Amino acid sequence: MSARTNSMLLGVAALIIAAPLVLNPAGQFGGTDDAASEVVTSSHPAYEKWTGPLWQPSKEIEGLLFAAQAAFGAGLLGYVIGRRHGRSGK
């Protein structure tokens, strides 16, 4: 692929990623855990959780752990793709 094609694809990907934030700036982008809890509570109001967290980190530590998990996953994915690309001999 040419550099122009790569640039166009990256631009399109950036627009796709940014579109929800631009089109709905005041939107609430909650996680699936929150959505699932709301559905369970609305369908079974008497439901009581039978488990709980072993440790509740602060918001800063929670963000750090999430970023570390994402970085590890991206590194692992990059390593696997690099190994497969190197094995193909290109």
Rank of each mutant, 00 (worst) to 15 (best):
A26L: 10
T32K: 00
A70P: 00
L64R: 04
L10R: 14
W50F: 14
L9N: 13
M8I: 15
V39F: 11
G78H: 00
V12H: 13
A19Q: 11
R84S: 10
G31H: 00
R4D: 14
G27Y: 01
G63A: 13
S43G: 03
A18Y: 05
D33Q: 07
P57L: 02
W50H: 12
K59H: 07
M8Y: 15
V40P: 00
E60F: 04
G63K: 08
I17M: 11
D33T: 01
P45A: 07
I81L: 13
T51M: 11
A67T: 05
G52H: 12
I81N: 02
R87E: 13
Q28V: 10
L77E: 04
A26H: 09
A67H: 04
G30A: 06
Y47Q: 09
V80S: 07
S7G: 15
S43K: 06
G27E: 07
P20N: 07
G31D: 08
Q56G: 04
V39Y: 06
R4P: 01
A68E: 03
G27W: 02
Q69L: 14
I16H: 03
L54H: 07
V39C: 04
E48G: 06
L54M: 05
A35W: 00
G31P: 01
V39A: 09
S2E: 07
L54G: 09
L76T: 07
S37D: 11
K90S: 09
K59C: 00
L23N: 08
Q69M: 14
G75A: 08
A68P: 00
I81S: 06
R4E: 15
H85G: 04
A36R: 05
I17W: 12
T41K: 14
E38K: 01
Q28E: 09
S88P: 03
W50R: 11
M1L: 13
A46Q: 14
G78M: 07
L9P: 02
S7L: 15
